[in-house]
Amino acid sequence: MLTIPVNPLQSTQTPHSGYHWDGSGRRFFEGWYYRVTLPDCGQTFAFMYSIEDPIGGQPYSGGAAQVLGVNDEYLCRIFPDVTKFWASRDALALGHWGKTNLNSQPLYLLPSEFAQYVQEGYQATANLNQGFMQDPATGFYCRWEYEIQPVYGWGNQNSIQQSTAGWLSFLQIFEPGWQILMAHGLASGWIDWNGKIYQFQNAPAYGEKNWGGAFPQKWFWLNCNSFDGEPDLALTAGGGRRGVLWWMESVAMIGLHYQGQFYEFVPWNAKVEWDIQPWGRWQMKAKNLDYEIELTGTTHLPGTPLRAPTAKGLQFCCQDTMQGKLTLELRQIRGISPLVILKADSYLCGLEIGGGSWNNFWQST
């Protein structure tokens, strides 16, 4: 057993990489999202880890791991024992032991030790994602182990990384908090999806998290870092209705990393508009003093229901596909006619809607 290999001065480590729970008994959740995309076979694996009310003994205390895998197939396991969860306050590192023959406090293990001693559970850091889970009813399982080399955090390369929600996210004003941990990285390893083994080298990887004691009423999300002919391009965009002190507000943002530069369109520096259908079409555009961007995500697939933390515990309340189509155009504002910097397409875009009241489209600026 050993300490977690973390360099806090690593240029890609973002704010909010550490665990946020303050040890109190207030309603609290934290969730982490790891994804790896395999362009060669057109598949994506998304791993979602969560912990709720970690003080224990509460109606919704417990943890979970979910995997959205091949052809948007879904696997979920609940880990009710909060004492078997661990996370670092200083860096991105967490894990939850399910079945194990270890009696010690949970902590980071060498990958070989984890595979030997933890029969079900997961562990994840900025450079590793590893675990095993199985549905006892069907026998369907997933086992995974891959290393991650971060390329982009959230901000310009080789400079201090930014908080996704701005400096106010350090205060308990906006809830839930949201942080893109790694806009783009390269993953190497393997995933065993119910007997079929997917091996990969330098595959596009992504990571984000959210946390807090309140839950968004409604949200949407687009994410892609596997584009045709553009290996150095990563997009994350999204919006939602969230609590701010005693009122609700609707906010949205677009973030793009391309050739070492970060293009950020957020409420405090840009005009952001969106038109999101209940399912099937996501349209956004944004403009700041220097640049403008337009993007459209579409899918004909039905999507897969996923669980997310809510005021009443982990519930099916969002819908995802990892095989959406995305078109994107970035322009530099110069005089009368803007200069097109980038046009890009993908058939491996993550698309999501979540929360309630999706009876008709959501249009806003």
Results as ranks from 00 to 15, higher is better:
V266C: 06
W154Y: 15
E230Y: 08
A252Q: 12
Y34G: 00
M1H: 12
N101Y: 14
Y146K: 06
V82H: 09
I197E: 09
P80H: 08
A64N: 08
L109G: 05
E147Y: 13
D275Q: 13
C142W: 10
L245E: 03
G335M: 09
S159F: 05
Y19T: 00
G297M: 02
Q332S: 14
K271V: 12
T327H: 12
K325W: 08
S357L: 11
G335W: 11
E292D: 08
V118E: 03
P15R: 11
V340C: 15
D192N: 15
V251Q: 13
W221D: 07
W193R: 06
Q315S: 14
N223D: 03
L186T: 02
M248D: 12
T164L: 12
P309E: 06
W32I: 00
G18N: 05
L351S: 09
A46G: 15
Q323Y: 14
E113H: 13
G356Q: 12
P216A: 14
C349D: 03
D22G: 04
I51S: 05
D72L: 05
Q199R: 15
N223C: 11
D192K: 08
W219V: 00
N269I: 11
G207V: 00
R334M: 10
D90M: 10
L306W: 06
R143W: 02
I336H: 08
K271S: 14
S346E: 06
L256R: 03
A286N: 07
I276Q: 09
A205W: 07
E294Q: 13
A205E: 05
L306E: 04
A286P: 09
L301E: 13
Q315W: 09
N129F: 02
I293C: 04
E264F: 03
L326N: 06
H20F: 11
Q116V: 00
S50V: 10
R307C: 10
A165V: 05
L102K: 10
A183Y: 02
K312V: 01
G350V: 01
T44W: 05
P204K: 07
S11M: 10
E292I: 01
S17E: 10
L92W: 06
M248H: 15
Q58F: 10
F265W: 14
E175Y: 05
V272L: 09
F361I: 00
C224E: 04
P8N: 05
T164P: 07
S364Q: 12
F85D: 00
C317D: 05
G63E: 04
R307D: 03
N129P: 01
F132M: 03
S250F: 07
G213C: 11
A308E: 08
S17I: 00
V6E: 11
R307N: 12
P309T: 02
L289T: 11
Q323W: 05
T310R: 11
G240C: 05
E175D: 14
G260Y: 04
T125N: 11
Y49A: 12
V67L: 14
